[in-house]
Amino acid sequence: MTFTPILSDEVVALSTRRSYIELNARARAQQLLDQGTYRELLGPFDRVESPWLPMQGIVTQSDDGCVVAKGKIDGQPAVVIAMEGKFQGGSIGEVCGMKMAEAFRLARLDNEKGIPTRAVLSLESGGVRLQEANMGELVIAEIYSEMVALRKHTPLIVVIAGPTGCFGGMSLAAGLASYVVMTRQARLSMNGPEVIELEAGKDEFVASDKPFVWSVNGGAQRFATDFADVLLEDDANAVTEAVKDLFRKGQPAQLRTDKYDLFIKRLKSMDPSKQWTGEDIRNAWKAGAK
């Protein structure tokens, strides 16, 4: 007698799904661009590495943790920038930050020349690289200004997949995007959980309590509270399709950074003396939206 397993559609879908989270930065950039159009700029063999890390006895990576690739998305010229979260926690140093800022600048110049170039930023970042602190901060300012200039021409999409998530300076970069795409596994927050716990104590934030951390800054919560526009399962093809769909949609009616009146109103409605849960914030903000 032979045993024939009967797999439900859900199980089949799960077994054929390709993870986006498990892809490294280079594979993510390839995944986001149309097949066969990928062309990396300043790749590993160009050896543009951090000059500051070896001085402090830290091993460099040949692309400084940032992959910049030209290609096409949905047949249109595009640039994809993907951060590698495993190298130095996806931190922004002078070289990788400048690669990012310069890629945005070149995309803007192309747009101004009449070549409509789209931009996607796949973030996995703990923020500024502490070993290059001042240069990192300066280059993050350059990134912001180039993002603001570029998004006048094209929707600028940020993808945050995890497992590192998006913190510090790059969380503000996510705020500047036209659209933010997140998975449930991803986190988005200005200060990381450990930093909050260290600064404000365990009464304020317990960094080791994973369900609590995700209930505050996880993808589902960020989507429910208007910090993310699309919430996805960890599926590489779903990420690619979501990005394509957003470009087809064009610019949002209102950029997130133009909604400051709404955000200020919501913040003012909160009583900081009380301990807020993720659920409380969702409810309060829903009520405040009216």
């Binding site: 490294n24 790749g43 590993p44 063999f45 091993v59 460099t60 990576q61 040949s62 590698e84 495993k86 190298f87 130095q88």
Partner: peptide, 15 residues
């Protein structure tokens, strides 16, 4: 020419 790996904890990059 080949490039593999990442400079992450317990890992390495080879050019």
């Amino acid at each position: 020419r080949a490039h593999v790996g990442v400079v992450g904890s317990g890992d390495l990059e080879i050019l």
